[in-house]
């Protein structure tokens, strides 16, 4: 017994070191696993408060830029709205009612980015919703220019978002022209470029083609802009394209975002068998 105690006393520094080191490795592995990391994260009360204070100050430096982005988006929306209105009138001038609010199956929630990383390999954002919301998991987050990420966890008004710049998620995306779809993944290198993989050989791809979100997932609605093709190659062995996509969203500078969720997601999920999850 005496020998045992002596042993522990002799190696106590090393024992403490290894115990804590194993703990740290376990936490790291846990953090790299999608949907596992619940307790040690920036959505907890203290850290969201501290990060929020910092964001409140830095917001002022970006007001001008941010205004421009939102104005541009408004302009696009206005164009789109007028276009739709024009067509609706032409097609069906009797039944179209302008005062009727648009019936949408999506709920859109305004949010503000309070912390963002893009230099690491596993990148996350922390966002604060600017209105009350009733959020489920796997909600898509978009900026005025394009997609940003997917909500992983939320608490009070704060939500933690897995950035598109994170190899642990892949997003269903398609070529806007031909609707051939693949998976959007990030290789951990350039924060402006992601890859669209597993696009079938039959698709016709050209540099400059637009890429948008696909309709095969419940995270993003179909047709949200992602980016444009800057390079592509055909994997001869597998018969799939590997396409480099330059993101529309400048991930190094996102401030205002929207969370988009399906209103009747629960109903849809019930219809999908468990195995597809």
């Amino acid at each position: 017994m005496q020998q045992l105690i002596n042993f522990f006393l002799k190696f106590k520094t090393a024992l403490v070191f290894w115990a804590l080191f194993v703990l740290a490795i376990a936490l790291t592995i846990n953090a790299n696993t999608y949907h596992q990391n619940k307790w040690l994260s920036s959505t907890n009360t203290i850290s969201s408060f501290v990060l929020g204070k910092g964001a409140a100050i830095s917001d002022y430096f970006y007001l001008k830029q941010e205004n421009k982005k939102l104005m541009d988006e408004n302009k696009r929306m206005k164009h789109y709205y007028l276009f739709q209105q024009h067509h609706a009138q032409a097609l069906d001038s009797l039944t179209f009612d302008h005062n009727q609010p648009l019936d949408s199956s999506f709920e859109i929630i305004n949010a503000k980015v309070i912390a963002n990383s893009y230099r690491k390999i596993n990148n996350y954002l922390l966002i604060e919703a600017l209105e009350d919301f009733d959020l489920s998991v796997d909600v898509g987050v978009v900026s005025p220019q394009g997609i940003v990420g997917v909500v992983e966890d939320h608490k009070a008004n704060f939500a933690r978002v897995i950035s598109v710049l994170n190899p642990s998620i892949s997003i269903n995306a398609q070529l806007a022209k031909t609707k051939h779809f693949g998976s959007l993944v990030w290789d951990g290198k350039d924060p402006n470029v992601t890859s669209l993989i597993d696009v079938p050989r039959s698709a016709s791809v050209a540099v400059g083609d637009l890429v948008e979100t696909g309709g095969n997932s419940l995270i993003f609605p179909e047709g949200i802009p992602v980016g444009e093709v800057i390079d592509f190659e055909l994997d001869q062995n597998r018969g799939y394209y590997n396409i480099q996509v330059k993101l529309h969203t400048d991930m190094t500078n996102v401030r205002n975002v929207y969370m988009i969720q399906w209103k009747d997601k629960e109903t849809i999920l019930e219809l999908i068998p468990e195995s597809n999850e």
């Binding site: 740290a24 936490l27 592995i29 953090a31 040690l40 920036s42 907890n44 912390a115 990383s117 996350y124």
Partner: peptide, 9 residues
């Protein structure tokens, strides 16, 4: 780590 969402890095 808690602020960076980085687990135990």
């Amino acid at each position: 780590d808690v602020f960076h969402n980085s687990g135990g890095v």
